[in-house]
């Protein structure tokens, strides 16, 4: 009986060194997999159709036109800062989130300016985003 008890006590001792190795293993595994998932968001955009024949008739009332110029954003030709744009767009989005947004971007504008506008629209639930290029 006494012998049996002793055995039980020795079995409880966990081999710490290999456990630490396993822990490191898990740690490194998570670090590596985490890095790959560097959260990337994808903003879907509609491209203008390449052939003019397929162009759809324009539906005027439901178009929201945003122009992105280097350092400046215009909504329906009125210059806006991003917070102003957000506020105005949120009103439009609350009214109808299905409406088409056309983002006209100047070729000289930096990509992050376009992305921030697209991001804003997506965040407000406007998903019909079209990107056109201003020459």
């Amino acid at each position: 009986m006494a012998q049996k008890r002793r055995k039980a006590v020795s079995a409880v001792q966990i081999p710490m060194s290999s456990m630490i190795d396993v822990v490191f293993l898990l740690l490194i595994y998570f670090i590596v997999t985490q890095k790959d998932e560097l959260s990337e968001a994808h903003l879907a955009v509609n491209l203008p159709s390449p052939s003019p024949a397929q162009e759809q008739p324009q539906e005027k009332p439901n178009l929201l036109e945003i122009e992105v110029h280097p350092g400046q954003v215009y909504l329906k030709k009125i210059p806006q800062t991003l917070p102003q744009l957000k506020e105005t767009l949120s009103r439009f989005a609350a009214y109808d989130s299905e409406q088409t947004v056309i983002v006209k971007t100047s070729v000289m504008a930096e990509t992050h300016e376009l992305v921030s506008v697209l991001d804003l629209c997506k965040g407000l639930g406007l998903t019909r985003l079209n990107v056109l290029t201003l020459q």
Binding site: H42, L43, V45, L47, P48, P50, L118
Partner: peptide
Amino acid sequence: IDGVMQAVGRTGLYRVRLAAEA
């Protein structure tokens, strides 16, 4: 980016996304 988008558009592929860091 526009140059790339036009090249994509000419091939007829339509599911285009712009990547951003979330």
